[in-house]
Every structure is written in C-alpha cells, then in structure tokens.
C-alpha cells in the first residue's frame, strides 16, 4: 500500500534540535494526543492546516521548514 499522504515533515529533527523535546511534550503544546504526533511523524496522517501552523510555531520556524510537499517534477 502506498503512503496515504505526500506531505513529509521534519518534526523529529526539529524536536531533537529543540532540546530533545518529547512527542508528548509537543502534543501537549499543540493540543493533540501523542498518537497523533506519532502518526504525523510516520507519514500516516496529514495534519490540518491549523495544526501545521501550530507545530511550526512551537519550533519557531516557517511552515516550509516543518512540512514539505513534493514539487510537480517529484510527483
């Protein structure tokens, strides 16, 4: 089965760069469950636009630094 979403993310790297923030800590800050953060990191769930902004805001990075979408050529 192919990946359910083409959106990729750098959340795991951003967490480690932010003092090894845990998935639970990030989930608390965004207002979701730890399982949702896990699903996002593993590409099993594409977050809502609002949630994506909230995650990027936690790490104080632009949205494009937290989430990526393949270009037309890569598709």
């Amino acid at each position: 089965m192919g990946r359910p979403t083409r959106v990729t993310n750098a959340i795991r790297q951003l967490r480690f760069a932010a003092g090894e923030m845990t998935q639970a800590d990030l989930a608390d800050r965004v207002g979701v469950t730890r399982q949702t953060i896990i699903a996002i990191e593993h590409g099993r769930y594409s977050p809502t636009l609002e949630m994506a902004f909230q995650i990027a805001r936690v790490f104080e990075v632009p949205l494009d630094d937290a989430f990526q979408y393949p270009t037309t050529e890569e598709l």
């Binding site: 469950t33 399982q35 949702t36 699903a39 949630m51």
Partner: peptide
C-alpha cells in the same frame, strides 16, 4: 483524554 483530538 476521552474526547479525542482532531485526528480522532
């Protein structure tokens, strides 16, 4: 958390 989040 029994209500679930947006993904749930």
């Amino acid at each position: 958390d029994t209500e679930g989040d947006v993904r749930d």
